[in-house]
Nucleic acid binder design. Structure first.
Length: 272
DNA sequence: CACTGATGTCATTGA
DNA sequence: CTTCAATGACATCAG
C-alpha cells in the first residue's frame, strides 16, 4: 500500500486522484482465483510508476483531468452474453470492476515492482480493456470504420466509463498508427533530403570546376590580348613616326566593326 | 551509467 | 461546430 490514502475515500477524492491500477480492480471483478501477489505481472501497466504512468493507468493523461468523472460512474449491467464474442460470452463474464472506493485498494502503489515490460502479453490498452470488461477486442475498437464502430457500441450496453475507455482506446490506437505513419514519412523525407543534398553537392562541384576552367580560359585570353596590344602598338606610328604609348592610348572597336585608336578615357562614337 | 533509437501518448492545429 | 489526421514534444524502454 504505497499510495498514501490519507484522505477520506470520497468520490471527490476519486475524482482528483489518479485511480490505482485497473488490473487491481480486475481482481475484484473476477471470480475468486488464486491469490495474486501484489506484484502480479498482470497488475502492472508494464511501465514504471512515474507520474505519467501513474496517470496513464486508467485515467490516462488528459482524461485524467478532462474525463475523470466518466470513469467513476458505474452502472451495473447485464451483458447479453448471446451477443458477445465467444471468448467473452460466458456466464462467468463479470461486470466491470466496481468503480468504488474499494478500487482504491492499490495493488502495490507507486513503488510496485516493474514486473511487466513493453511487449508483454497485451498492450496497455488491451489490459485496460480487459480490466474494464470491454466485451470486444481492441483491434476492432481501433480498426473498425466509424459506422461499424458505432454499430458495435450500440450492440452492447456499456457504462459511461467503459464508453470513455473505448473511445480513448480508439483515439490512442488511431493516433498510434498516425504516429507510425508520420515517422515513416519523416524518415523518407530525411532520406530524400540527403539525396538532394548529395545531388546539390555534386552540382556545386561541377560548377566550381567549370568556373575554374573559365577562369583559366579568361586568363589565357587576357594574355593573348595583352600580346596583341603590344604587337599592334609596336607597329603604330603617328605622323611624326613616333610610337603610341599603350598607357595613353587604347584600341576601341566601333559598332560597325571599325577599329579606332583613342586616347584612354574617351569612348568611340557610334558611326552612322 | 549515459546515450540513442523506437515507440506510445498527449496537446494542438488545420482540413 | 465536430471530427480526425498530422505532428511536435515528452516519457519510457531496450539495447
Amino acid at each position: 500500500m504505497a499510495i498514501p490514502v490519507s484522505k477520506p475515500l470520497s468520490l471527490s477524492g476519486l475524482l482528483s486522484e489518479p485511480l490505482p491500477d485497473p488490473l487491481a480492480l480486475l481482481d475484484i471483478g473476477l471470480p475468486a482465483g488464486p491469490p495474486k501477489p501484489q506484484e502480479d505481472p498482470e497488475s502492472d501497466s508494464g511501465l514504471s510508476l512515474n507520474y505519467s504512468d501513474a496517470e496513464s493507468l486508467e485515467l490516462e493523461g488528459t482524461e485524467a483531468g478532462r474525463r475523470r468523472g466518466e470513469y467513476v460512474e458505474m452502472y451495473p449491467v447485464e451483458y447479453p452474453y448471446s451477443l458477445m464474442p465467444n471468448s467473452l460470452a460466458h456466464p462467468n463474464y463479470a461486470l466491470p470492476p466496481a468503480e468504488t472506493p474499494l478500487a482504491l485498494e492499490p495493488s502495490a502503489g507507486p513503488v510496485r515492482a516493474k514486473s511487466t515490460a513493453r511487449g508483454e502479453a497485451g498492450s496497455r490498452d488491451e489490459r485496460r480493456a480487459l480490466a474494464m470488461k470491454i466485451p470486444f477486442p481492441t483491434d476492432k475498437i481501433v480498426n473498425l470504420p466509424v459506422d461499424d464502430f458505432n454499430e458495435l457500441l450500440a450492440r452492447y450496453p456499456l457504462t459511461e466509463s467503459q464508453l470513455a475507455l473505448v473511445r480513448d482506446i480508439r483515439r490512442r490506437g488511431k493516433n498510434k498508427v498516425a504516429a507510425q505513419n508520420c515517422r515513416k514519412r519523416k524518415l523518407e523525407t530525411i532520406v530524400q533530403l540527403e539525396r538532394e543534398l548529395e545531388r546539390l553537392g555534386s552540382e556545386r562541384d561541377r560548377l566550381l570546376r567549370a568556373r575554374g576552367e573559365a577562369d583559366r580560359t579568361l586568363e589565357v585570353m587576357r594574355q593573348q590580348l595583352t600580346e596583341l596590344y603590344r604587337d599592334i602598338f609596336q607597329h603604330l606610328r603617328d605622323e611624326a613616326g613616333n610610337s603610341y604609348s599603350p598607357e595613353e592610348y587604347a584600341l576601341q572597336q566601333a559598332a560597325d566593326g571599325a577599329i579606332f585608336l583613342v586616347p584612354r578615357g574617351t569612348k568611340v562614337e557610334a558611326a552612322d
